[in-house]
Amino acid sequence: MSSRDRVLGRVRRALADVTPHDGPYEEAVGRDYLREHGERTTGRTVELLAENLADYRAIVHRAGAEELPDLVARLLAGRGSREVLVPPGLPPGWLSAADVVRVQDLAESTPQRLDRVDSVVTGCAAAIAETGTIVLDGSPDQGRRRISLVPDHHICVVRVPEQVVSSVPQALERLDPVRPLTWISGPSATSDIELDRVEGVHGPRTLEVILLG
């Protein structure tokens, strides 16, 4: 007997007392909770996103389309970044004012190579106001998962208000589970020493979020 059959057989014997539910799944569970918490205007939702991002030590900036290139250039220069990782579909204008070397993420680039890059600039798939979360889904303006992971400085541009949702349930509705997803809420952190939160372990230690719109 294969282990698969053994385990499934044990499961079935263990459930001998249970009458299976044959109706639709959603009827079986029932969901008595909110789709979002509180009622807010769109503007207030974007503000809440900014507050919650900042609460978990992300640095939040706002810019209109025309100010964006200068802001990005300033942020990169402020950190002294010389090399910047660029996802394949990043809008070319975003880096147009920056005096940096653009590094494409090639399939053959080793992690060691990416580790020498100072910063990365990406877009995002969605942002969640209630939790201060941005979600990347590997679209062309975000690139492979590793490029937003290995460099120590991540600049992420969120188009507001269209990419912002209020809540976790609303975010899941928008996202495609087939794509590799990374949910980011502030810079990397740990609570492993005396259950006290410390920012900055393996992921980017500085997360800057630009609310574009």
Partner: peptide, 21 residues
């Protein structure tokens, strides 16, 4: 668990993705 609104990182993957991971 950590008393956070959301933990810093959550990864979701479905099988393998060409050219990523």
């Amino acid at each position: 668990s950590t008393a956070e609104r959301m933990n810093p990182y959550t990864s979701m993957w479905t099988g393998t993705t060409d050219g990523d991971g």
